[in-house]
Design a binder for these strands. Sequence first.
DNA 1: GTCTATATATTGATAGAC
DNA 2: GTCTATCAATATATAGAC
Lengths: 211, 211
Amino acid sequence: MSAKAQRPRPKTRIQREKQEVILEAALDVFSQFGFRGSTIDQIAEAAGMSKPNLLYYFKSKEDIHAPLLARILDTWLEPLREMSPEGDALSEIRSYIRRKLEMSRDFPRESRLFANEMLRGAPGFYEILHTDLKTLVDEKALIITGWMAEGRLARCDPYHLIFSIWATTQHYADFDIQVQAVLGSERGGDNRFEDAALFLDQLYLHGLTPK
Amino acid sequence: MSAKAQRPRPKTRIQREKQEVILEAALDVFSQFGFRGSTIDQIAEAAGMSKPNLLYYFKSKEDIHAPLLARILDTWLEPLREMSPEGDALSEIRSYIRRKLEMSRDFPRESRLFANEMLRGAPGFYEILHTDLKTLVDEKALIITGWMAEGRLARCDPYHLIFSIWATTQHYADFDIQVQAVLGSERGGDNRFEDAALFLDQLYLHGLTPK
DNA sequence: GTCTATATATTGATAGAC
DNA sequence: GTCTATCAATATATAGAC
C-alpha cells in the first residue's frame, strides 16, 4: 500500500493490471534466482511481453523488485500481529503456527523471495528488520513472557520460540524441493502440509505445556 | 573426496592450495548470491587474483561451483549419520540437534550455499536428494519409529521431526541477519547459539518425552 | 502502448605475451 | 603461472518508428 506511493500511481485500471501481471511474473523469477540472478528478459518472458514493453511499466529491475519486497514483510507478519494477549496462551501459539504454515502453503514464492534476501544479508532491508520487525517481536515476546509468568506456558526463551516457529513453517516453502524429494511421491503429495501441521501442533503443545 | 576425482587431480601442493583459496572465496560469494547471481570477477577478487588466473585453475564457473556442492551434502548429513539405534532415544535426538546447530554456527556459508540451491529448485541435485538423502532419512526414520514403538519417544511423524530439526538449526545460519536484527546488539552477540541450543533442547525434550 | 533496433555495460571465457 | 588484451554472449536500459 505505502509501496505504491513510491512511484507515480497508476492512472488507469489497465495499467494497474499490467503492472500486476509483471509483478506476478517477477515474483516467480526473483523467488527462484534472487535479485542478481534474475534477468529482465526472464521476467518479461514469464509475463508474456517484450522487454522494452515491460520497461515501459517499470523503469528498472530494481523498481520491480522493491515493491515486491515492500509488501512482503507486512503480509508475512500478519499472523504474528494477530497473536493476542487476551487469548489462551497455548491456543494463541498453536493457531499462530497453523496460520504461519498456511502462509507457506499459499504463498511459497513470497517466502522464497524473502529467504533470498536474507541469504544475501538483506541489503537495504536491515533497517526495517532492526526497527519495525524488532519492535513487533519485542512486543510479542513480552506477551509470551507474561504467559510464562502466569504459569500458562512452559518457561523458555520467547525470541527463540518465535524463531523456531518461523523456521519450521517457512521450511516447507523454502526447502519444498527437498521435502518432496525425501517424502517421495507417495507422501509428498498435497497432504504434506497437513502432516506438518499435525506434527508441529503436537511438538509445541507438549513442548510448551507447563510442567 | 570423491568430488576431487571428477577433475584431473592436482599435481603439486601449491596447485592444491591455490584451488583451496579459490574454493574458499567462491564459497563466500556463491553462498550470498547463488550460482547465477555470482560472478567470476567477484570470486577472483575475493580470492585475490585476476580472473584469467582463476580460470587457469578452474576452467568454468560451473567447475568451481560443483565441487563445493558435492562436498556439502556429505558434511551436512554427518550428524544425522551418527544417530545410532543403540543409543538412548532422547539423548540421540538431542545430541543430533546439538551437533546440527554447531554446524550452522561453524559452517554458515555452507548452509547458505545449500539453501540457495534449494530455493532455485536444486537443478541437477534433485536426483541425489531423491536417492542418497531419501535413503538415509528413510533409514533414520525407521530407527525413530522403532523408538516410538518401544515407548521411548512420543509418537509423531519421524520425517517431519527431522525436517523440523533441519529447519530450526539451519535457520541460525541462513537467516542470521534477521536473527541478529531482532535480538539486537545486546543479545545478538556470540551467545545466540547457546541460547538457541538451550531452547531447542528444552522444546524437543518436552515435546518428545513419551506421555 | 508496443515494437524493432541499438547503445552501453557486464560477464564468461580465451589468446597470447612474458 | 600470471598478466594484458580481447572476443562473444548476455544484460540493463533507451531511442524512435508505428
